[in-house]
Simulated scan of single mutants.
Amino acid sequence: MKRVRYDYETFVKDLKQLADSIPDSFNAIVAIARGGMTMAHLLGEYWNIRNVFVINSIGYEETRKLEKTKVFNIPDLLPCDDILIVDDIADSGETIKAVLDTLKARYPDKRFKTATLFFKPNKSIVRPDYWLKEVDDEWIDFFWSDDLKALT
């Protein structure tokens, strides 16, 4: 598997390109923690959306894949109608699917769309509504996972 370093400067340029390619407007953003948190923060600032929330999911414990993805920390989306769910990558798609299923069950009258920077079309069970780059066998080393650790 090829490893690709994804730095902050590339992220900002890519996120701007992704944001500008999304034709819909939203009144809330839900970040899938942890990969979607930086995206949600910057998109909230860019689009002037104050309803920025975080939802958590766990699909692995260490390197062991869980039978079912756990979804928790479900935000109160009652005052919102059009919600964008963001994550860094749709790899297997299981996390996005679990989050979407959970939110749609809790809020059946809301409109949900998904956006990722990266999408693995040959692997993901979910096709995001919006994505910027398709990857195949790459492992993305995101700056938010590595940069602070590199300083120690």
Rank of each mutant, 00 (worst) to 15 (best):
L84M: 06
S57F: 03
E61I: 14
P23N: 15
D81T: 11
K113P: 02
L117P: 00
K133Q: 12
L42V: 04
I58R: 12
N51T: 04
S25F: 09
D82I: 00
Q17Y: 02
D147C: 13
F11Y: 15
H41G: 03
V54R: 03
M37S: 06
E9L: 14
L151T: 09
R64Y: 12
L43V: 04
I49G: 06
K16T: 09
I29C: 10
E67Y: 12
K133G: 08
T114P: 01
T114Q: 04
D20T: 06
V126C: 10
T63V: 14
M37N: 11
W139L: 10
K113A: 07
P108R: 07
L117Y: 05
F53G: 02
D147R: 14
V54T: 11
R106T: 14
K133W: 10
W47E: 01
V52L: 07
F72S: 05
I74K: 00
P108W: 07
P128N: 13
Y8L: 13
I74M: 07
V135R: 01
P121S: 12
P108H: 06
N51F: 01
F142L: 11
K16W: 02
S124W: 05
S21N: 11
Y60R: 12
I96L: 14
E9Q: 15
I55Q: 01
D24G: 03
S145C: 09
K123H: 12
W131P: 02
I85G: 00
P79Q: 06
T114F: 02
L18A: 04
V12S: 07
I29R: 01
L84K: 00
V52S: 00
P75R: 07
K120D: 07
R5L: 12
F11R: 08
D88R: 01
G36K: 01
F143M: 12
L43G: 02
W139N: 10
S57V: 08
E94G: 11
D129S: 11
L100W: 05
L42D: 06
G36M: 00
L148Y: 08
M39T: 09
A19P: 00
V30Y: 04
L100F: 06
N48L: 09
V12N: 08
N56L: 08
K68V: 14
Y6M: 05
G36E: 03
A28Q: 07
T10K: 14
L148V: 08
